[in-house]
Design a protein around this nucleic acid. Structure first.
Lengths: 97, 97
DNA sequence: ATAATTGTTTGATAATAATAAAACTATAAA
DNA sequence: TTTATAGTTTTATTATTATCAAACAATTAT
């Protein structure tokens, strides 16, 4: 039945669920998933109405969990979902958002 | 594409993710799902090692989110997962645990 | 060089959440 | 009736999170 998993795996799952438990982060993740490509932080900010420092805080959380990638170009930062990692860990989760 | 959903639906999803973000609750939910039948609180307590009042606290949270059912028989209480509700809201989620 | 833009970090605060001991309720057993 | 069991609630405490203003850093535009 393979119920027992490595703690680490379960812990990462829990962090992903944690990420999705906050309205702001849920919107960020959902939007990144549905648009299907990276977005500038500022662009994200226009869609998800939260203070820019709060946005930055949440984006850091997502980065630290490991479910987003960030690319810097000039003074802009582009965020994208690490879909492969999420799908590998929790296949089918993203399409539920 | 049906991206937009009722707030309520998304809010409930977020609460389910919240439920799964805590190690204790994750274990409770995962165990209830994998054993496939209701369990007495005490029985649950033997598997998930947390103080009985903490257990009660978490079980209340799950009940309030609406993802568990509780049946009282004598002085025992039996908890089961509201699988239908979870599957209806987030199909396929449970098998990822 | 100065100013504007894009984001991060710090610091303070408020809000939520987790934990556990102790008191409590209800049922069942002795 | 007393005692034990099963679980909840209350109270207190601590830990974690979320929020935002202000200061900061880096880049680009004027």
């Amino acid at each position: 039945m393979d119920i027992k998993q490595s703690n680490t795996d379960t812990e990462i799952k829990q962090r992903v669920f944690f990420a999705l438990s906050d309205p702001g982060r849920y919107k960020i993740i959902s939007m990144l998933y549905h648009v299907g490509h990276e977005m500038g932080c500022n662009e994200l900010n226009q869609h998800v109405e939260i203070d820019k420092s709060t946005m930055s805080y949440h984006l850091r959380t997502l980065r630290e969990i490991g479910i987003t990638n960030t690319r810097t170009q000039g003074r802009q930062k582009y965020v994208s979902l690490n879909i492969e990692k999420i799908e590998n860990l929790l296949p089918g989760l993203l399409k539920l958002l």
